[in-house]
Amino acid sequence: MQIALVGIGKIALDQHVPALRASPDWTLAATVSRHGTVDGVPSFTGIDDMLAAHPQVEAVSLCLPPVPRFAAAQAVLRAGRHLMLEKPPGATLSEVHILQRMARDAGVSIFATWHSRMALGVAAARVWLAGRSVQSGRITWREDVRKWHPGQDWIFEAGGMGVFDPGINGLSILTEILPTPVHLTGAELDVPANRQAPIAARMSLSQGIEVDLDFRQDGPQTWDIDLQTDGGTLTLRMGGNILEVDGRPVEGQDDIMQEYPALYARMAGLVRDGASDADLSPMVLVADAFTLGRRNVVEPFEF
């Protein structure tokens, strides 16, 4: 099947393009970007021009920032193409609800991806937790924004989500593996004086789970989940790629390069089955944090 990739930035070049090149299901037929290109692939600067020039393209994968993504997603669905969305799937929940209805009415698949759910230890963690009761837990998701989003001011604008852009990865794992859903009970958001989105956040969830997010981590990066249950302690490290139970290795390895190939395999399956997958539970927790959270103004931030 032929697919187009829209938004040729760091995440597209680091993850999407290698995954598509290795995919047995997809051929990258076109790209759309104001600045970026992929060698050997026809490139366009406007999505409407690409859609008109490539009627054989069956699906479009959007890697744009959340705010401009909605217009591009609507264009894809109006053209009757299948739609794959990088996380978070939109700037607002209402936008994604509209896209879900459009996809259903057009009879095409929509896939709101959460790449961390494809990490190597996540499926086994979900199986281990089934039937167990979570008593308490902690998510620690701390990374360096200058390393992962160099110079990308959009991430601190309204709709850019700030530290929740990476933090939602941990929440996507949590909502995938827990036997029963969680809800937000409190939050604090640290917003730089010269920015609109938080650079750090703390969240309190039901089931005694605390969340610590920070975009100012120096040195080694931290992407860990620890859950205390009535059957022992489950730990997911390295963004969900290593699973431990009571300190003993159970599943996985430190290899994040398996996540995006798994996403594109899932997308191919959805298209073949005429199905969609647009779970918004991680984004609901983030939206609730912006609604319920206390806002603390902290020192200005510059790249």
Rank of each mutant, 00 (worst) to 15 (best):
I3V: 15
G7L: 04
G7S: 09
G7K: 04
Q15N: 15
H16G: 03
S23D: 10
P24H: 01
H35Q: 09
D39I: 04
G40A: 10
G46V: 02
D49G: 02
D49K: 09
V57W: 13
L62R: 00
P68G: 06
R69Q: 15
Q74G: 08
V76A: 11
R81A: 14
E86N: 00
P88F: 15
P89F: 10
P89S: 13
E95I: 07
E95V: 06
V108W: 03
L120C: 07
A123H: 01
R126L: 08
R132I: 09
T140N: 12
F156G: 05
G162Y: 06
D165C: 09
L178V: 08
P181R: 11
H183L: 02
G186A: 15
V191A: 00
R195Y: 01
A197F: 02
A197E: 15
Q207M: 10
I209V: 13
V211R: 09
L213I: 05
R216V: 01
G219C: 04
Q221E: 14
G231Q: 12
G231V: 14
R237L: 09
N241S: 07
I242D: 05
A265T: 05
G274K: 12
G274P: 11
A287G: 07
A289Q: 10
T291C: 06
G293N: 07
V297Q: 02
E302A: 09
E302R: 08
F303N: 08
